[in-house]
Amino acid sequence: MSGYLTGVLVVLAFNVMAAYAVYLPLAAGQLNLGIAGFMAIGAYASAFLTNEYAWPMWAAIPVGSALAGLTGLVIGIPVLRTHGIYLAMATFALGQVISAIFLNLEVVGGAAGYPVSDYVGPNGVFLAAAGVVVLMLYLSRTRFALYLTAVKSDPTVADLLGVSVRGIQVAAFALGAAVAGFGGAFYAHHYNFVEAQHFNVLLSVFTVLYVLFGGTQTVWGPLVGAAFFTLAPELLRASDQWRYALFAIFIIVFMAIRPEGLVTTSLLRFRRRKNTDGAAAASSEAA
């Protein structure tokens, strides 16, 4: 694999992890616009433990992820009392605050950034992203995923049926934060350098865009969205300097035509039905 291709795929792997971190709460109807902040917690925590306490990476990365998740849990409990635009603004501010704290924290280099000792290669990053995808696929097969949709669809009825709406929302938010921290920790060890400026609003907003583009109705949406956003600009690289503008226009038109995103339940269902119809036709022919 060429160095260029590997580099692009590594970026894709990080974007996929970030996308699922946004997807989890969004599937329950909660927009987290501060995902970069949780990535920063994972990145800095894991870097700090390996640098200052000589922890092995394989122990520091899960702890970084858990710390991000714990922060998500503690902050999610009060923040998820707000809804809609207020929740978006609260999480937006939260992301800013977290990144500002790291920017001013001298023990981790402050504005100068923080070099990280242990290195994880591309294969490690791919494995991490694959692990996140497998975990998400697993969850999508459980009642947890069912309740995410139920809570988003009709929280009043979900509550009357005995589902803990707040519990599901906080769990999705905290788990998303843990996934973000996991990705952030790998980011720190792959690039061997973290700086607070990287974990900015644009990163959070772009990630939300991938997810909305891919669609939140199915577990495949974030993967497809992240792949499209990472790879399409690369494929257009050969063309002119207008590629970003063209890309942006395409996104606007696409979202206007298909606001539910690229991958939807009806799309998957339609494909499945076509397959079974095909099978039925084949067996009736045989008979």
Binding site: L146, T149, A150, K152, S153, D154, T156, V157, Q217, T265
Partner: peptide, 11 residues
């Protein structure tokens, strides 16, 4: 009628 519109009947 308060069904979850994006879920299937079975769900």
């Amino acid at each position: 009628i308060r069904l979850m519109a994006h879920l299937t009947v079975l769900e």
